[in-house]
Design a protein around this nucleic acid. Structure first.
Lengths: 224, 224
DNA sequence: GTCTATACGGCGATAGAC
DNA sequence: GTCTATCGCCGTATAGAC
């Protein structure tokens, strides 16, 4: 995408963005100085300002790039799955690859959410949109796999994304955490949630008592 | 706990710790300047160094305090639950209260994990221990509630804690997220996981095919 | 148009006198 | 415990080299 009669050196831009993505994901936004970015990318500090205006502009570009990378990772290959379970397994293995090969994507998005979403409404908005897009992709795959509109599919998507996030964070604490176990649990969880939504009251065999009991009691519903 | 011939003013310490906890949770460790901490707590900047040595010492104290607060929040009241489901509902409502009243605990722990666990092995170690303690409490309650050792109870604990974390992060992006829905899902998930672990092969009604298939394939198990 | 050299104001952490 | 001073890094602006 040329921006003028000449175009800014995209290779320089990429070098800066690569370094920024790496360092933001590792040490956070506030914890990463532009000096370090210059050193790491081999680009002069002031050139960074030339390309992105200021540090926040760089942040926006990094976010955008991470979002794109994520969407590419989870883009449905719309494959010839034979059964719903097949489709689920394919989706899970795709997510697993993402976590193994590009854990920085989710780490970056989560870290930035916690670190700067309070101050910068634009960043929060960007985050919301990114996660909504991701969830939409997931629920789309889900509905397609099941062959019907799963009621409350958004909730399933939230759980899925939440667990992915949790795995990434957990591995930050303890890199030896077993992905096998985590993904086996995720699979079971999704199946159980979907089953319950498609056929409420039947999926759970031991729902002997009042179910929403304590949990859903005496708290006003949210606005949205 | 006196520390010398004179004792350091505990009220001052508390004021500093309160401000630090609040600001670290809001803007992260690197993003919080000692100047701001001084301003917020009403204590001179250098007095902070007097009390905690350096910023990292302050971080350690904040972590310790947050861990204690968390454990208090989830401490089993060892109540007279009549059924396992009862016990689960009690535990869930306790967690829900924690998220509603002290969301900063989980936010702080998560943010610090992502932000500084890479650089500071001591912090990572502290985080691991905190989460292990929390999980131990949870699995303890779980086993007690069920009245037997649930196989793979640790996995259930991981899922539970992970979902709690995900809810906190999600609310950071979008405060209007429904806790009702989230906790209803969590309840169902836990029940299904426990049921599957107590009676494998029976809990899932539609496990028609090879189950661990794609997900658990061709990846070496972890060390720990 | 793309990038570098240099400089500046501010805040970060810390030491020492009071 | 506070006050004052110090020093280095951080984000930024600008002037100019290619």
């Amino acid at each position: 995408m040329p921006r003028g009669p000449y175009q800014k050196s995209d290779v320089t831009r990429e070098k800066i963005l690569g370094a920024a993505t790496e360092l933001f994901a590792q040490r956070g936004y506030a914890g990463t100085g532009v000096d370090r970015l210059a050193e790491r990318s081999g680009i002069a500090k002031t050139a960074i300002y030339y390309h992105f205006g200021n540090k926040e502009g760089l942040l926006a570009a990094v976010l955008d790039r991470a979002a794109t990378a994520w969407m590419e990772s989870i883009r449905e290959s719309a494959d010839r799955a034979t059964t719903p379970e097949d489709a689920l397994d394919t989706a899970l293995s795709r997510m697993r690859s993402m976590i193994e090969e590009k854990p920085w994507i989710l780490k970056l998005l989560t870290l930035l959410t916690l670190e700067v979403a309070d101050d910068k409404p634009e960043v929060r908005k960007a985050m919301s949109e990114i996660f909504l897009r991701a969830r939409r992709t997931i629920t789309g795959s889900l509905n397609e796999a099941v062959g019907a509109e799963v009621p409350g599919a958004d909730g399933v998507g939230n759980v899925f994304l939440g667990l992915l996030q949790a795995v990434v964070i957990g591995r930050e604490r303890d890199p030896s955490i077993s992905l096998d176990a985590a993904f086996a649990d995720m699979r079971q969880i999704i199946v159980s949630l979907v089953a319950a939504r498609l056929d409420p009251g039947l999926a759970q065999e031991d729902r002997s008592e009042g179910v929403e009991s304590v949990v859903a009691a005496d708290i006003p519903p949210r606005t949205s």
